[in-house]
């Protein structure tokens, strides 16, 4: 973890919240019986507000904590880390300021989640299908359409992930819009999300 890299004070305290949000997203999805993970909202919000390093930490620690009850998820930490990096990058480019662009960004996140995810599954499960729900779609794709196993797995995971990530980025967008200005002012990338009317106040006197 970031021993030598200095994290600013508020980001440090936002990281545990981001990690908890990753878990709660999944928990609420479960309570609402949604067949989705929704477990990267915290990573994306923290990445977007605090930058690359906090984003990476949220992703990494979330998976470490998840691995307590299911250690194999440790290998998928790389996905969550990539989400954090991507979120920080897109945030700097101003992507999360526009709803349309935010929606589009779900494609990138799903590509990371589905692509990297199926690759990881592919290796871990001996070049075969994994134990995730995506196999329910991947196996028929392989069996009935005769697609190669990896391609079936990729299509299934990417297809499921796109729904997941659309909901995820919408949630992240809503949160970024709703955070009060005084709070944004103290975060490394917070300025990006301060409304123009508030920015104008600072230029006076």
């Amino acid at each position: 973890m970031a021993n030598k890299i200095k994290i600013d004070k508020l980001s440090l305290f936002l990281i545990p919240i981001g990690i908890a949000v990753n878990f709660i997203g999944g928990q609420i999805a479960l309570l609402l019986k949604l067949p989705l993970y929704l477990d990267a909202i915290g990573t994306i919000v923290v990445g977007a507000l605090c930058g690359v390093v906090p984003g990476i930490i949220v992703g990494l620690v979330s998976n470490v904590l998840n691995s307590i009850s299911d250690p194999i998820t440790l290998f998928y930490a790389i996905l969550n880390i990539m989400f954090g990096i991507a979120a920080a990058y897109l945030s700097k480019k101003g992507v999360f300021k526009s709803f349309g662009k935010t929606l589009l960004s779900s494609l990138l996140f799903a590509l990371i989640g589905g692509g990297l995810g199926s690759l990881m599954t592919w290796v871990l499960y001996g070049f075969d299908f994994g134990t995730g729900t995506s196999s329910i779609f991947a196996i028929p794709l392989h069996e009935t359409l005769g697609l190669p196993k990896f391609l079936s797995q990729f299509i299934a995971e990417f297809g499921m992930d796109i729904f997941d990530k659309v909901l995820t980025v919408i949630a992240a967008f809503g949160i970024l819009q709703a955070i009060p200005t005084r709070f944004l002012a103290k975060l490394p990338l917070g300025k990006i999300y301060i409304k123009d009317a508030d920015l104008a106040l600072e230029d006076e006197d």
């Binding site: 508020l10 305290f13 936002l14 919240i17 908890a20 949000v21 709660i24 997203g25 609420i28 999805a29 609402l32 949604l34 929704l38 909202i41 919000v45 909901l167 919408i170 949630a171 809503g174 949160i175 709703a178 955070i179 009060p180 709070f183 103290k186």
Partner: peptide
């Protein structure tokens, strides 16, 4: 749709408490 009004207040409250 019910996902958002559930997560929203929870998250914003948590974020505000970090200060």
């Amino acid at each position: 749709k019910a996902f958002f009004p559930t997560l929203g207040p929870l998250l914003l409250g948590a974020i505000a408490s970090t200060e």
